[in-house]
Design a protein around this nucleic acid. Structure first.
Lengths: 346, 346
DNA sequence: CTGTTAGCGCGTTCAG
DNA sequence: CTGAACGCGCTAACAG
């Protein structure tokens, strides 16, 4: 409406700016990309173009650029479930790194389903992402990641499936679980049970190993008797696992560890449903943290992963690959730590 | 390694397949896109191409396609904070719709910061997303959404800033808050306080209006005395708001409502920090749901938004715009409902 | 009927 | 400071 050329309301393409100012597309591009000096564009020319841009705006098509440069400055992230606070936090951290480096993060979730994972990977790869961070729900060797793109950078996080060809960044699991278990056995002066989803996931297998080790060390003969597993990591699975105790006509274990917040949520719901409340003497251990844990009156020991450090490492590895630098250590374990919730003092 | 042409390990482009099979790119494309019959490709030809594809794989460049079709089959989502369970759930629901319709969802978060929001919008728009669903952190008129792209579909969710030019899908706020407040006043037989982040957000303003209305109706003279606000929606803000009560040398209010889970988390943490535990007589109201609420022994009334319905409506509106169909009602309010947590029976 | 040719879209690149 | 080719899938027009 204001000017006469095309559509006044919208930003202009390089070709439009070139046509309007009478310079070539190349010249316009140099000015817009801040390379005016490098290519000795006359300052007067520069000003004309800059003024036009200031008045009308530019709309660089990243799509066209990507076609040529074979880069999208986009990286993908595939997580099993955003409802899991650990992954939500990891996502937020990775986004910070992306924004800082002028990239965008494309997040997709697999809902722990290999098919959805495959769909998500395909969708992102087709769109030319430069790299991908993935917490795979199956061994990634089986996925189509390898055939995906000519040069796709890949970093696996959280789940170190054996034989993975890609750099892997995981939180500590075996060590910290052993520590947690030992501490709880000492406090409870008795057996500690382990409610555990997805025992086939490497991260969970490590937790089981840590648990078994600490249990054996404390003198319990049959560690596996204390472990109950479920195939899926959901609130419902947590309820089912806890229901197992009530089903035996019994009571909940006095001390137990849940392999994830979702399992814990379900387990607690089931106890409340069955008993009307949480027995105050219950000693609880869990992985990952949520602020609401502080409002639960029971003593809770939580293993906090360092999402920030994991995200940073993963991002570094990704950038290293994209730059052609091979990542030095192919496997990094980021230590976690055990914290008491606020109510634990009571 | 296996074949001789280019790189054995990777899927082939249309041009590569054409060169290898001896047909033209157009023919190959027809077969690959399942249009062989429509364009009467000889079935023998079709088989040759299909066999080659089966053996080597195809790698359609969505980037090149987008350049031509001016569609990316990608839609963007901008949320203030993924740590907020409401937005995490909304994201998951939208992703389902995208997958079903062969699109990908690109999620970015603004951390409630207008600048980050602008960066995120720009990043997505530059990459040619077909539409965007946004829970804006400021009035979106001020944002650059309007100048963004020639034809970007936009739907605003959760926050209906006045005068918005775009279709808006929000949860009910005023009505359900009035209901919640009235119910809590009746139960507590006394005043109910409202701890409230971001009072300038339209969704929160509606909640304040509902609260004030119910409070006035119940005969409380100065509703605004019962409302305390904080500029940001974080756990820390919740702690600060609750600290206000203790600062007066007082005790926490016997009945209070928090405008979000984050505020609630902070408020509860602060009470636990100050008193060592949550007084069991505390009556609590909050917005949005988290499974861990069920493990808090106090009676909690939670307003649950219907993320599924919100996501569905928003997606419908988006698709309608992308198809050139104008969305009929420009503003939809999805009803919420009040639920008791499991412990509320006690 | 069966398939091909030519150019488009738009930012990038490099020889002029 | 410019011109022309390039990347790769899409589409209309066209030949055998």
């Amino acid at each position: 409406m204001t000017n006469g050329s095309t559509d006044a309301a919208y930003a202009k393409t390089i070709a439009e700016i070139a046509a309007a100012t009478g310079f070539s597309r190349t010249t316009v591009r140099f000015v817009i990309n801040g390379q005016a000096e490098r290519y000795r564009i006359k300052s007067e020319t520069k000003k004309v173009i800059e003024d036009y841009v200031a008045a009308h705006g530019v709309a660089i098509s990243h799509v066209a650029r990507s076609l040529r440069t074979r880069r999208t400055d986009a990286i993908g992230l595939i997580v099993p479930d955003l409802a899991n606070a650990f992954f939500a936090s990891l996502t937020a951290e990775l986004e910070i790194h992306c924004r800082r480096s002028g990239r965008v993060l494309l997040t997709a979730s697999s809902q722990e389903d290999p098919e959805q994972e495959a769909t998500a990977i395909a969708g992102l790869v087709e769109r030319g992402i430069d790299g991908i961070v993935i917490a795979p729900c199956r061994s990634p060797g089986a996925s189509r990641l390898s055939r995906a793109g000519r040069r796709l950078a890949v970093v696996v996080v959280d789940r170190a499936f054996p034989g993975s060809a890609w750099p892997t960044v995981v939180g500590d699991n075996a060590g910290v679980t052993a520590e947690l278990t030992a501490s709880m056995i000492a406090t409870a002066a008795g057996a500690v049970h382990f409610l555990c989803a997805c025992p086939d996931l490497p991260s969970i297998a490590d937790r089981i190993a840590g648990f078994s080790q600490a249990t054996a060390k404390a003198g319990f003969a049959h560690a596996d008797r204390l472990i109950r597993t479920h195939a899926s990591d959901t609130t419902e699975a947590g309820r089912a696992l806890m229901r197992g105790f009530f089903g035996d006509g019994g009571r909940p274990p006095l001390a137990f560890i849940c392999s994830s917040l979702l399992i814990l949520e379900g387990a607690l719901q089931e106890i409340v449903a069955a008993m009307g409340r949480l027995p105050p003497e219950l000693l609880i251990g869990t992985f990952d943290y949520h602020p609401l844990l502080d409002a639960v009156p029971n003593r809770i020991l939580s293993v906090r992963q360092d999402e920030k450090a994991i995200a940073e490492k993963a991002f570094d590895y990704l950038v290293a690959q994209m730059d052609g630098r091979p990542a030095q250590p192919l496997h990094v374990v980021v230590p976690g730590r055990i914290v008491n919730t606020a109510s634990a003092v009571g």
